[in-house]
């Protein structure tokens, strides 16, 4: 059984809770041996650190044990992970995309675009190979495209990249959900 599941929603819409619940359910029902959590957050300030700690605590207190994988930029999984035996939850890919924009910021516009494209291709390849090898992955993202365009070019660039990535993921996924304040809408 292989699955790519996409979950998106606004801030505090309950998407993380839904994704964690669903990941645990698949882990139990399909009798997989490992449950992984991909963390992409970089603690840039105190609030962010608290946020990361709160998420860590939630997972520590859970009856089922999560293992954490850090992916801040290079989308690569440790080699000893067996897709057939695992369920992965990545919450959330918007944070990863922000990191990519940040680490490429010093590059000249065209070079930067190419560099970002390389990261995106690598990310998509990771999802494809994970699924091909019977892995299950749940991807959580943010809904930030239903508001007016920003007056900052950088923010609009981010929105475009995220929108195009979402389109690709939704197309490739087996299931796609949109959360609206704890109400789940299944699109696919």
């Amino acid at each position: 059984m292989a699955k790519v599941i996409f979950i998106t929603g606004g801030v505090r819409s309950g998407k993380s809770a839904f994704a964690e619940y669903y990941a645990k359910q698949l882990y139990q029902e399909l009798e997989r041996s490992s449950l992984y959590y991909i963390a992409s957050g970089v603690a840039v300030d105190e609030e962010m650190e608290m946020r990361i700690r709160r998420h860590q605590k939630d997972r520590e207190n859970s009856a089922i044990k999560w293992s954490t994988i850090e992916i801040q930029d290079d989308p690569k999984l440790p080699e000893n992970i067996s897709p057939k035996q695992s369920v992965i939850l990545w919450d959330c890919i918007t944070t990863w995309l922000s990191n990519i924009l940040y680490i490429t910021e010093h590059l000249e516009a065209n070079a930067r675009m190419l560099e970002i494209e390389k990261y995106l291709v690598k990310l998509k390849k990771l999802f494809i190979s994970w699924k091909k090898n019977d892995g299950i992955i749940l991807l959580v993202s943010n809904e930030i495209l239903d508001e007016p365009a920003s007056s900052y070019a950088e923010a609009n660039y981010y929105r475009r990249l995220l929108g195009e990535l979402h389109q690709w993921i939704v197309h490739y996924s087996d299931e796609a959900y949109e959360m609206d304040y704890s109400k789940v809408e299944r699109w696919k």
Binding site: E143, D146, A149, R160, G163, H166, Q167
Partner: peptide, 9 residues
């Protein structure tokens, strides 16, 4: 009418 967020295709 076709409605949707930006960059939604």
């Amino acid at each position: 009418v076709i409605i949707g967020g930006a960059y939604n295709g």
